[in-house]
Nucleic acid binder design. Sequence first.
DNA 1: ATTTCCTCGC
DNA 2: TTGCGAGGAAATT
Length: 419
Amino acid sequence: MVNKPDYSALYAREKKVLHIINRIESRGLRWDILKAQQLTRLLNTKIKSCHKKMSALAGEHNPNSPKQVLAILINLGLSRKQLTEKGSLTTGSAILRRAVSELPEKHRAKSCIESLLEYRSYSKTVGTYLIPLTKQALSRDGIIRCEINPVDTITGRMASRQPNLQNIPKSTKNERANPVRSCFICREGYINYYFDYSQMEMAIFGMYADEPRILSAYQNGEDLHTYTASQVYRLPEKKVSDGMRSNCKAVNFGIIYGEGQRALATNLGWNLIQTRSFLDDYYHTFPSIGRFQWQCKEELNEKGYVEDWFGKRYHVPVGQAYKAVNCLVQGTCASIFKQALIKVDSAHHLMYSDCILLPVHDEIQIEHSHNCTIPEEQWCAAIIDKMVQVDEVTSRGLTLRVDVAKSTTNWAEKEKIEL
DNA sequence: ATTTCCTCGC
DNA sequence: TTGCGAGGAAATT
C-alpha cells in the first residue's frame, strides 16, 4: 500500500562515489608548513596587539568570552537595544558592525569593537586553520588528508571533516591572498584547475519554479542577481547598482533557504515594512516563484515528502514546510554534482592519470600533470563537457554554466581563465 | 560530556 | 520559521 521509491540507481551512484572519495582521501593536499608557521607568528603578534588595545580601553578581559565582551561593551556605553537580536543579547560580528556604523565618530567603544572584530578574525585564522592544519601536516609529511562523508547529510551533500576542507576562508577585497589558502600549494609538476558550476542553485531554482525569464537570462550568461534586480527595479541591467543587486541577492537566497520576513529584514538591514514592500514587488515581478513555493507545500501536505528530479524524497515535517524548497534545490544540486564527479573521474582518470583533489559542493578541484600534451583548452573542455552532460539536467533542456580557474602556485593565487 | 556562541564555506 | 555543513573556545551540567 505504501509506494516504495526505487532507490537502486541512487544506491549504485553512491557506491561509485565511495571509490572516488577513497582516492581523494588518500591523495590529500600539500601544505606549506614553513609558510604556515611564519604566518602564525605574524598573526599572533597582531592578535596580541588587538588584545592590548582592547584592554587599554576596557580593562582586563578574555575577548573569547561573549559574556565578558557583552559586559565590556555595555560598560563602554552601548545600549542593550543595540546588542539585541531576536530578544537576546549577542556580540556577533553582524550586529557589532551595525552598532559601529551608528556610533558617533570618536566614541570610545568604536575602536574597541574594531579591535575585537580584528582579534576574532585573526584568532579564527590561526586557531581554526593554521595551527590544526600545520599540526596534521607535520605528522603526515606535509600532506593534509580529510575524511569525506557522502551520505549523512539531509540533502545529499558531502561533508568534510578532520579537517573540514570545504570551509577554508576565501580571499577578501582587503586581502589579496588569504593566508590559509596560500598554504595549500600545488604539487611539483602539477597545475591545479578549479571547475565550478556558476550560480547552480539559482539555475536549478529557476527550473523548479519554471520561470522562463530567469532561465533565459541564465542561458545568456547573465548574472542572475543582477537580472532579477533589473526586473524588480524595472531598469536595464547596466543601470542596476551594487546595492540593488545585493538586495535581490539576499531575497533570492532567502527564498531558496526558506527565510522568513524577519530574518530577511535583519539581513537587509531594513524594517519589516520596507522588507514586506520589497517582497511584494519581487513576488509581483516573478509570480512563478510564489506559485512554486505554494506547490511545494501542497506536495508536502499531500504526500508527506517532496521528490526531486532524481526520485530522491525529502521527508520534511509539516511544521517545517519552509524547508521543502531548499531540500529540493540543494538536494538536486548535490545529486547533479555527484553524478558529474563520477563522469569527470572516469574520463580524466582513464585518459590522463590526473587526480581529483577536492570536491566543494559545486566545485571540482583537479590536479593536472604539467607534461600533458593535450592543449589546455581541449582538456578543460572535456572536463566541462562531463559536468554539463548529466541526463537529469540535459533532458530538461538546461545547460549548466561552468567557470574555470587555475593556479601553478597555491590555492590563493587561482585565476579565472577564459576558454 | 554536552550545549552555547561565534565564524568559516557553498 | 535563515538552508546544509564543521570546528574552536567558553560556559554549563
